[in-house]
Nucleic acid binder design. Structure first.
Lengths: 201, 201
DNA sequence: ACCTGAACACCGTTCAAGT
DNA sequence: ACCTGAACACCGTTCAAGT
């Protein structure tokens, strides 16, 4: 099944190889030639499936969003009330970033640089946003979050979680805080100002 | 003043050249060889001042933090009450990211990757954090922000602004919102949940 | 349609040598 | 101490050629 021609799905094999390199050796090791090598093809083979390196990165970023969506969906499925779902989503978001920092970073590195558009990436991005928006509007309905423009509220909550995670990956959160509190505690404190029932430390 | 030896400050000239490349051509154009060329020296000359490319990037990131600090300091100096200072800082933070997206991104790209430490970068980072913390604690004293652990509160506010800016640079904020509201409006809505006097849209 | 191998311009890094 | 020029291994991309 793999003589001169590949198993028929080189495109996805390249994406998987890229993600594995990201996970094991980091973003500086993500080269087209290494990806091709890991997939068992010549260094020029990827060009049959991707226009250039940026296109492969866009595909890897879209897959990052897809995996993130799965984690968020799984995290909230097990909870019933809206607040627990919001916290579970926040925790799953942070956990994905901690588990796969380089894949997470590349997903939010701004691949969609104005001119070129990558439809799959955009679709996955919107799908993820929609999931968070459902949780946020449920919280608004339940009186847990302030009422108001749901899109605006979603951006606020999402950006808040995202910023915390980004700063953490960039080693910009004071070590004293990380030593003193657990991740769920930190996220809880962090989202507390948004809640209508405050119990700030 | 520039025969065989350089003007005596090649190190800073390289940093400035790097920032200029970042500003004009973006992060993918930031190569040691181009930086050297722009500074008017051979491609091996930078190694007399930086151990490797990562060390130059760390210096550029530290300078990014320094410039960010200046913008934030200037923004709040002109305001008297604490809330106006908080908003001015948030606005200046976003403006720096919009004006110099690639320099901003590289400043928060996680140069301090565990093992190696870059003292100047760490110092500038802490200096910036301290500035935000003063504004935040002043807001707490004035009853504008909820009371509580000042370091925790600073992280919350900072992460919230940072996340919004990062998502904007990654084109992840819905275009409808960007079209409908101005940047100060968006930042105001975004920080509203933290304030004790809410006027959510 | 899908892949290979050679080729080209470019990059990070090292090192002997020059002042 | 500070810089140059040649050298090496590697990278992204292109292209003629093979099945």
């Amino acid at each position: 099944m793999n003589n001169s021609y590949h198993h028929g799905d080189l495109k996805n094999a390249l994406i998987r190889a890229g993600i594995e390199i990201l996970s094991k050796d980091g973003v500086q090791a993500l080269t087209l030639r290494q990806v091709a090598k890991k997939a068992g093809v010549s260094h020029a083979a990827p060009y049959a499936h991707f226009a250039d390196k940026q296109a492969l990165i866009a595909a890897i970023a879209a897959e990052g969003y897809r995996q993130l969506y799965e984690k968020l969906a799984a995290a909230q499925e097990s909870r019933v009330d809206a607040l627990a779902r919001l916290m579970a989503v926040a925790q799953a978001y942070a956990q994905f970033a901690i588990d796969e920092p380089d894949h997470f970073k590349i997903t939010f590195s701004g691949v969609v640089e104005a001119e070129k558009d990558y439809p799959d990436y955009v679709e996955q991005s919107k799908r993820c946003f929609a999931l968070v928006m459902v949780v946020v509007t449920d919280c608004q309905s339940g009186g847990i979050l302030e009422p108001g423009d749901p899109e605006l509220a979603t951006v606020s909550v999402w950006a808040s979680i995202h910023g915390f995670v980004q700063l953490m990956l960039a080693n910009q959160i004071p070590g004293a805080l990380l030593a003193q509190y657990s991740m769920p505690e930190l996220l809880s404190f962090h989202l507390n100002p948004f809640l209508r029932t405050n119990t700030q430390p």
